[in-house]
Design a protein around this nucleic acid. Sequence first.
DNA 1: GTAAGCTTTTACCAATCGGTCAAATTATCG
DNA 2: CGATAATTTGACCGATTGGTAAAAGCTTAC
Lengths: 214, 214
Amino acid sequence: MAVPRAARTQRRTRIQEEKEERILEAALDVFSVHGFRGSTIDQIAEAARMSKPNLLYYFRTKEAIHRQLIDRVLSTWLEPLQAFDAEGSPESEIRSYIRRKLEMARDFPRESRLFANEVLQGAPHIEDELKGPLKELVDEKAEVIRAWSRAGKIAKCDPYHLIFSIWSTTQHYADFDVQVRAVLGQEQAGEGRFEDAARFLEQLYMDGLRIQST
Amino acid sequence: MAVPRAARTQRRTRIQEEKEERILEAALDVFSVHGFRGSTIDQIAEAARMSKPNLLYYFRTKEAIHRQLIDRVLSTWLEPLQAFDAEGSPESEIRSYIRRKLEMARDFPRESRLFANEVLQGAPHIEDELKGPLKELVDEKAEVIRAWSRAGKIAKCDPYHLIFSIWSTTQHYADFDVQVRAVLGQEQAGEGRFEDAARFLEQLYMDGLRIQST
DNA sequence: GTAAGCTTTTACCAATCGGTCAAATTATCG
DNA sequence: CGATAATTTGACCGATTGGTAAAAGCTTAC
């Protein structure tokens, strides 16, 4: 008899690695569009081009797939904020944070929607991550911003709401892509919209925070 | 034999009015949390405190409930943008638009999440509304903003991305409420967060658009 | 009151859901 | 090669899904 999951903790075959990758890739496709409850194992199995029992050989439950997906994507998702550096200048740090977040919205929209779906539906599976690692990271970076504020490098403002506003404006282009495209219309909805967004947002935050451009 | 839906088009009894209201109210609760696919008729029926067949007597299908809910909520949802007045001053119009949108995020979070869920999942049920009425309204208001820009009343900026950014920042407080609360922590997550947000956003947009406060 | 129509319920349906099982198949290693 | 372990499959399970049929219960207008 096969002992797949016990074996996997010790060493993973090429096949295991390959199939798990395919499953997670397919699951990202499905979960990011329909959310956890709206997605079915059959959908994921079909997207991964394998039978349902075969998929369940690698992941015991639907939740197991979802959890691993979340875990894997979360760290990538926080990277831009991690990179936010107290030593840098407010201008370059905020500019590049906006750019990075917009690039992620452009290049990894599924990851963005995966989280958006999860949070929107009450974050039943990632509450701990939000209250733990995420809060700590934001607290830390908020302190950096507050220091800039006090030093007169940027306008006085609530650092938390500043971070929220950058999150929401940038992720908007991934999460609400359909709406953005619909409103912009065929002509303006090309890839150039990310450049336009970057230009607008950088200007908004530079002037809004009264940061002198160098 | 009963002919409920035909009769309803002619005149609605007190009971019909009452029950349909209860169903839509319950459906808003359920759909706004789980999205269309993630919600079940049973859930809605239970929330509406009636049996499933009884619910299906008033709405033939799950989609019928969802559609009516969307239709009803959409106009309310667009009201703040409708109120955006070309004759007013940029300062008062943008200020009050932000306030109104934040008030809606605070007072009608379910409505916001209903749309967020729908759009996030590809807007399969409201594509027409987005490409039609919504786009037209935004086009119209974008022209107002562009005129202000040209007249030197506000900084030059892309009016579409300005509108997107106001949408995303304000709705963020409804759609990602769990995240906002988690990050702010127990102490700061009270109702005061909406006042803090309003203060931050008004400052950001006034300075970001170089609008002189009067 | 009573008859007509409106509302509600009980019982049910086929399809789909997440997941299991044992057997068949394939890969790996000596 | 042969044996052992890893992988894949088809058949199946009970629960839940969206939805129906028909009869019972209730309102309302005459």
